[in-house]
Design a protein around this nucleic acid. Structure first.
Lengths: 141, 141
DNA sequence: ATAAACGCTAAACCATGGTTTAGGGCAAGA
DNA sequence: TCTTGCCCTAAACCATGGTTTAGCGTTTAT
């Protein structure tokens, strides 16, 4: 007998909430999931692989709409390989952009932290504070 | 005379929309911005520096609520340095977590792309597709 | 055989981070 | 001076990605 999983088991496996999975299903992300006679969702191993992919795309901030597009391609079978490649390559570039943005801005946060950690932090900050307040005064004239 | 900026100029400088800036102001992120006699916002150079910080925190996905907390500390003056450090350090760790998540999942996307790009991609995908569809059939018995 | 745990849908509700619209005042150039 | 462009607020509206609730059926362990 082939091992199957309940919605709760899948939720735990992927650290999703049960309602999140139902939400994704409603949005058309899980057209491959079958149901038993009582209407309960039954997840196969092959389903888990696809859900893994969905989670991967979600973790890299792909929108549900775009994930649905990808899944729709998968459901159409192997003739959509080129379309899937195009979609994933586009997403790949978007992820690299996100990484770049995070890295650049993290550098600035580290820079700020360094200043806060410096021995004369208090003096620097006090002066900046004065500068900020001082201009207010000038401007209101 | 000290150079000042209009809301539109600031929007362009930081690639924000004018309504976004007004929205941030309404949320309490810009308590330092003064207004002229006509009620127009006037941005000083010192203001721009703080807005730069806000954008930096926003770019690393800090919530508006937390950005407001940081700005509130700034407005209280240099006595809040320790609190600011604590907040920024916590955020720093969150950013590093984001980076880790992105990197891990990008690796998987690249792995999928490699498969799609392999010479026998069509066969692999056709087999996976059959596997997915086949289990459906088994399960529905 | 029954209680507790689990599953289902549909619909309402929510938080976040905005945009849009309406209605009106101010500024700058022709 | 007057038109065009810019600024303002308040309030409505929106998209996204969910969670919660109500009402009801199923499964499982005791």
């Amino acid at each position: 007998m082939i091992k199957t999983y309940t919605i709760k088991e899948v939720a735990e496996k992927f650290d999703l909430s049960v309602s999140q999975i139902r939400f994704y299903d409603k949005k058309g992300l899980l057209p491959f999931v079958s149901k038993n006679d009582s209407g309960y969702r039954i997840f196969s191993e092959a389903d888990l692989q696809l859900i893994h992919t969905i989670v991967c795309l979600k973790n890299t901030n792909m929108s549900i709409k775009d994930i649905k597009q990808y899944i729709d391609y998968v459901m159409e079978g192997p003739d959509t390989i080129e379309l899937r490649k195009k979609l994933l390559n586009k997403h790949r570039r978007a992820v690299i952009q996100q990484q770049k943005l995070l890295a650049e801005n993290l550098k600035e946060i580290d820079f700020k932290l360094d200043r806060y950690n410096s021995s004369n932090a208090y003096d620097i900050i006090r002066e900046q504070f004065a500068y900020l307040m001082n201009e207010k005064h000038v401007n209101s004239n």
